[in-house]
């Protein structure tokens, strides 16, 4: 019972953070700020939802369920390590492409030669 409650809480918080990421991707003004929302919201909501699902899997502790929990944790750690890396690769590609940057005083500056 306690495990079920904890996993429901984790999944709900994960979905709330995913709402933040999705709204951020939709609303933020330029590529770089959208990247903030995408990289961070994605990592954290994925982590919380998968943790919740993995804990729910443990409600009857058999060996097969433990193996599935181990696999889910492996996916989680894998995405936690690779998501900032791909964020970094994509934002660097965009930066060298010369995409314009949005600033407060309304003008846009890019990486022009």
């Amino acid at each position: 019972m306690i495990i079920d409650t904890i996993s429901i809480c984790l999944i709900c918080i994960g979905i709330v953070f995913f709402i933040g990421g999705a709204v951020g991707i939709l609303r933020f003004p330029d590529f770089y700020t959208r990247m903030h929302a995408a990289g961070k919201g994605d990592t954290c909501s994925m982590f919380l939802i998968l943790l919740g699902l993995g804990l729910y899997q443990l409600h009857e502790p058999t060996l097969a369920n433990f193996l599935v929990f181990g696999k889910i944790m492996f996916i989680t750690i894998f995405i936690m390590v690779t998501s900032p890396t791909s964020t970094h690769a994509l934002i660097k590609a965009g930066f060298e492409e010369g995409i314009k940057m949005w600033t407060r005083n309304g003008e846009k500056k890019g990486n022009v030669k």
């Binding site: 953070f17 933040g20 951020g24 003004p29 929302a37 961070k40 919201g41 940057m101 600033t103 407060r104």
Partner: peptide, 20 residues
């Protein structure tokens, strides 16, 4: 950082804090 993004994304109207 996610709470920060969430707060910023759900600000109604113009996002004041944004200053890249």
């Amino acid at each position: 950082s996610n709470v920060h993004i969430l707060k910023m994304a759900l600000t109604p109207g113009e996002i004041k804090e944004l200053d890249p």
